[in-house]
Amino acid sequence: MERTDDLKIVKVKNVPKRKNKDTWAIIGFIAPAFLIYGVYVIYSIFMTFYYSLFDWTGIDSNMVFIGLENYIALFRDGVFWTSIQNNFLLVIASLFTQLPIGLIMALLLFSPIKGMRLFRSVYFMPFLMSTVAIGILFIFIYEGNYGLLNSVLGVIGLESLQTAWIGKESTAIWAVIATVCWQFAPFYMILFRATIVGIPEELYEAADIDGATGWQRFKNITLPLLMPIIVTSAILSVIGSLKYFDLIYVMTGGGPNNSTELMATYMYKQTFTNFNMGYGSSISFAMFIIAFIVTLFILFGDKQRKGNDS
């Protein structure tokens, strides 16, 4: 890296005209994307922060500047802390269930079982369904009185485990998280499968000649070559979980008694149900900060890993 930088500086000093041309070309290519990014991302983040400094209903012109009071209230708000906790539960559950299950499914698709094409479609199906449909489907599966899950538990003699899955504060968040994982594992399966397809056959042939077992082949060839895509998946999964909204909104609406509230659903509730645009914006902005810090951590960790590799 350093060497190329040096080179550039030398170049710049020698042929300044060339540099100008490049600059305009670069700007020309970046400007359209930057404009869109600016309007929809940078400007929005800035405005969110701006609104969060006001006591404002969001529907009238009467905005009262209250400085950081929304943030002070936020720190004292128990529901907000519950929602952060739930978000991190979701992050952990996503990382440690969606990715491994996606990987296992991807590996299964390479095993010499008959009818693999059918399984490929079946495995991918959950990801193709609309979130609202999934939500309603699982509401009925989890239903406490005549739901599918309880019926199955009854049939196999586990009546003691029967409960109202999304009606109880203690189980609701787990029931929804399980649904989220069910929906998104196939997405990672497709990513992993595409990468595995790209691994050269020769490596496996060489391993066979050396007498490697199946596990050794996986550990020493497949996994290392999958690492970059696993890191990308982890980032997607973490950010996705921190911003998650859909299934919670459809299945529990944040209830019962706020036990499944996420930052995004709580923000929605405050902004649009309670008419607290200012407070809602401060939740939004806090979400942004949290997601930002977490992303920095992951990127930093990944950099360390790459450093160790070389």
Binding site: I136, I139, F140, Y142, E143, G144, N145, Y146, T163, A164, W165, I166, G167, K168, A172, T252, G255, P256, N257
Partner: peptide, 22 residues
């Protein structure tokens, strides 16, 4: 019913109990 707080009126969950005599 079990888990009242998880049941949704809009998807008919309470009415089903009524219709099925439960």
């Amino acid at each position: 019913p079990e888990g009242v707080n998880g049941m949704n009126y809009d998807t008919g969950q309470s009415r089903q109990l009524l219709y099925t005599n439960s």
